[in-house]
Design a protein around this nucleic acid. Sequence first.
DNA 1: CACAATTACGAGGGTCGTAAAAATG
DNA 2: CATTTTTACGACCCTCGTAATTGTG
Lengths: 285, 285
Amino acid sequence: MMLELHQLIQLIAIAECGTISAAAEQLHLSQPALSRSMQKLEEALQVPLFDRQKNKISLNQNGVLAVEQARRVVEQAQNMVEQVRAFERSQRTISIGSCAPAPLWELVSLVSRLYPTMAISSEMQEIQTLQTGLKSGEYQLIILPFAITEADFYCVAFEREQLYFSLPPAHPLSDAQSLSFRDLDGQIVLLLSQIGFWRDVCREKMPGTRTLVQERQEDFEELVQASALPFFVSDLAMKWSGKPENRMVIPISDPEATAVYYFLCKKEDKKKLSALIQQITTEEF
Amino acid sequence: MMLELHQLIQLIAIAECGTISAAAEQLHLSQPALSRSMQKLEEALQVPLFDRQKNKISLNQNGVLAVEQARRVVEQAQNMVEQVRAFERSQRTISIGSCAPAPLWELVSLVSRLYPTMAISSEMQEIQTLQTGLKSGEYQLIILPFAITEADFYCVAFEREQLYFSLPPAHPLSDAQSLSFRDLDGQIVLLLSQIGFWRDVCREKMPGTRTLVQERQEDFEELVQASALPFFVSDLAMKWSGKPENRMVIPISDPEATAVYYFLCKKEDKKKLSALIQQITTEEF
DNA sequence: CACAATTACGAGGGTCGTAAAAATG
DNA sequence: CATTTTTACGACCCTCGTAATTGTG
């Protein structure tokens, strides 16, 4: 005779339900089946767990202890299942964290082509979170707007993004060859919420600006069409989605309007990601 | 599908044996049965655990993690079995510790009459060990040669033992009415090894005496018959085993030759042992 | 060719559910 | 009389072992 997990789960159910009948129902099992199963458990333990009166059954002191112990065993087993599943999942997914949306467009497409069997999970996060996440293994690779030198990290330039103002033709500054953040500071500007670290740049360089932040892409598009408000575009955004219609696109001259994205991964993962790294370092962006 | 303990045990066996065949043999199982069982396990976990080459099987990374986790689960389960069994055993046994053999004769017989369903385990131990053992629950009741007052303990006098010298008639002191330890100090004395704290009394009161210590009762009896050496008896010993033949029995006058044994148990156990305590406190010894 | 793993298949053991019995409030 | 537990019994699922297949060193 062998102790089995399902018996422990049943024991716990009985402890929680009070009667065998109730527990059997909860377990989608017939009453007699559960009754016999508990007899088997007592047999396996070689210890009586219940006080049996013809009509009623209740845990004796052994039973109370056994339930307590069984909870630990079952918890440990559930823990095992979770851990193994999580590990397996992590084995076949590449988690990407980025400080901005644009690099993901290129990177996700690249990764999915190079590692077609892998699942890809990508998200935007605070720069600090990205770094600790890379260290902890939450991310296999991250995109930062600057290079960092850390012993465990491999770091290489990935691509460049240039920010532009998008202005309606009627806008007083729409014929400028170039503008700075200051030129539009104080005006109302349309913004998408999911723009990562650009949000911080915006706050810093245009502190007097009221921003209309749109959560949803569609709402943003709607407002772009309907309003004459300025907003931001970038070379990468236009490469992927095209130039905004009926708009003047004017480069922003501040150095902060140009981002160079760096690709980072753990050095121990360099081998696994070698195909990707090769692609990045050789490809022309 | 349900994770089961026997599958985890099998997984561990495979990890330890290296091949399914070897593990199957160790588990007294056929090779195909074990092979299928592991397929079921992978199904239950929804995670592949093995690298399968037509002819060879080996744990993959998931498998290595799973084995590690499985060990914990199985260990926890074994631990559960042990704990529950130990508890059950402790429930139906009364453990008695004594500083000397004589009180056990009466006490064990008393306990076995009063609690016929209980198993009795009795042993002699150092006084210090007895006290800590009572506190830790290793003993339900102990016998000490003195009373102690401790908050958690219930303490009551149990019985009295008076020590005698047993001398051959030809011994120079054999006609004395009474003797002290000093009177025989320096002579050779026969001793049984299992006499508990009397051994300490002996060492202290007769420091110059060489003792011939016999481990086995039969050897002791043999020497008693064959030699003319003095040895000890007590009123309780004589009550249970009779007077030694062809010997003079002479009381020892030192106060240390009289022991008053005290019965101690945890106050929380007083109720369980009430029948015994009633017997002890009312009975005349 | 010995050895290892998987697949196929029939036998047997074990567990299930239904039905019945016994006991209790 | 409803509720709860246990026993009895037949059905069925599941796992086992044997045998056969495939592949490897």
